[in-house]
């Protein structure tokens, strides 16, 4: 029941932070600095490593083949067959890389947009 183990690990990662008091108590509670327990980083890095390890095992069909997208694979008459993106989705480690790209991309986009989109809380005062 590797699945169960995996899931409990995931949940532990959240409750671990709960068990730990914040690493540094901020003296000024109005500033917004982020506090994460060192243990949290250990847990999340281990979990990431475990998923990569499991995927490597799957490459050797130790746990069944890795989840891939047959519909994006090369085959006659498949409209996706010549697309690099379609091929990319079938690479090893695609999900990890894509997770990183998606997260960094959206954070940077949000950061860029924040210049234009963030406004003071009284911005709409006096409007209907």
């Amino acid at each position: 029941m590797a699945t169960r183990k995996k899931a409990t690990r995931k949940k532990i990662s959240s409750s671990d932070v709960a068990a730990k008091p914040p690493a540094s108590q901020d003296d000024n509670p109005t500033t917004d600095s982020v506090c994460l327990a060192p243990k949290f980083w250990k847990v999340i890095l281990t979990a990431c490593a475990v998923t990569v390890l499991l995927e490597i095992l799957m490459q050797f069909h130790a746990l069944g083949s890795a989840h891939r997208h047959p519909h994006f694979q090369f085959e006659e008459g498949n409209p996706m067959s010549d697309s690099v993106l379609a091929a990319f989705s079938n690479w090893f480690g695609f999900y990890g890389i894509y997770g990183i790209l998606a997260c960094v991309g959206s954070v940077l986009l949000a950061k860029g947009l924040s210049v234009f989109l963030k406004a003071r809380e009284d911005y709409y005062d006096g409007t209907p």
Binding site: D32, L36, I44, T51, G99, A102, V107, K118, A119, E121
Partner: peptide, 29 residues
């Protein structure tokens, strides 16, 4: 495995980049 991998790597990056996205007492347009 792949779903967890994506979520975990994404979460890792998210927490690494958190200082970049300081919550500010603002609203967004």
């Amino acid at each position: 495995v792949t779903v967890l991998q994506m979520l975990l790597f994404s979460a890792l990056m998210f927490f690494l980049l958190l200082p970049l996205l300081k919550r500010t007492p603002t609203i967004s347009i």
